[in-house]
Design a protein around this nucleic acid. Structure first.
Lengths: 146, 146
DNA sequence: ATTTATGCAAATCGTTTGCAAACCT
DNA sequence: AGGTTTGCAAACGATTTGCATAAAT
């Protein structure tokens, strides 16, 4: 999916909520296209024109519009990434226990299908109505092994 | 695994750090044996003798001793559960998007093996040294469907 | 008696919010 | 002008910490 398509879709999703795609909001989506999952400080480093509170507010709105997804692990800051529906790639996370960095990875389709089957069965048994699944793999990234 | 065994193992792990298994710490482990994954307020509800700060401090220590594992999702409070090595059951989580409740579930061994294989390959490719994996399934629990 | 654990109250820090100025259209 | 978005500074709330008391050995 091209970056123009991502912006179009973001705009459409905001419009659907009666919100406009302002410069700040577009700037945030751009940063996420460029850099992948970012914490708020990382985002502010890359786009220093953004005020902290505005960044938080825009991210909250973009999350509500399902343009962005908030991912939270056991580190100080939450991370934000583009929603899977915008990028078109179902993926999972390699999470570094050293620095908290998050890398996106994909699994073979066949395995995803087995997983979905099994999770459906298990959720049904527990009386859950199923939503999506997150698979996080924890480890130490190349940088932190130094 | 019996509850006595869990306490023994907890005691051993603390001893290994030069720490003792005090009444407070045992009480917390007991509550987790009884109730499964708990937030701090839920824990205090069940064991009202515990002071908030002591509960946080004991949980931090038990986490460091790998008696307890801290699981964090997108809700106000972190949750604490007994470490897998203490219960002997590798498991995953059904997370309710309504109330934040967490239910433990297990997957077929065969699937876990496929998963481990695939994750190893993927982690290697990204330069990660692999640790454990967390698989969280989000949905709506029976209570919240009412 | 000395060390360790506990509980209270205060501090910390990521995130959220009130409000006035800036920005559309 | 009228409504929305932004940025600053203050508020919030989960968790952590300082310090004085209470257990434990």
């Amino acid at each position: 999916m091209t970056s123009a398509t991502v912006h179009d879709e973001a705009k459409a999703r905001l419009a659907h909520m009666g919100q406009s795609y302002t410069a700040n909001r577009r700037m945030i989506v751009d940063a996420l296209i460029d850099a992948g999952p970012l914490t708020l400080p990382e985002l502010l480093d890359r786009r220093s024109e953004l005020a902290q509170s505005s960044a938080y507010r825009s991210l909250a709105l973009l999350t509500e519009a399902r343009v962005v997804r908030r991912i939270v692990h056991d580190s100080d800051h939450a991370r934000f990434e583009l929603a899977e529906e915008l990028t078109g790639h179902h993926h999972h996370h390699l999470v570094c226990n050293g620095c908290g960095a998050v890398v996106d990875v994909e699994l073979p389709n066949e395995l995803e299908e087995l997983l979905d089957q099994s999770l459906s069965a298990v959720a049904l048994r527990a009386g859950f109505v199923l939503g999506h699944h997150d698979l996080d793999v924890h480890g130490i990234c190349g940088n932190c092994q130094a």
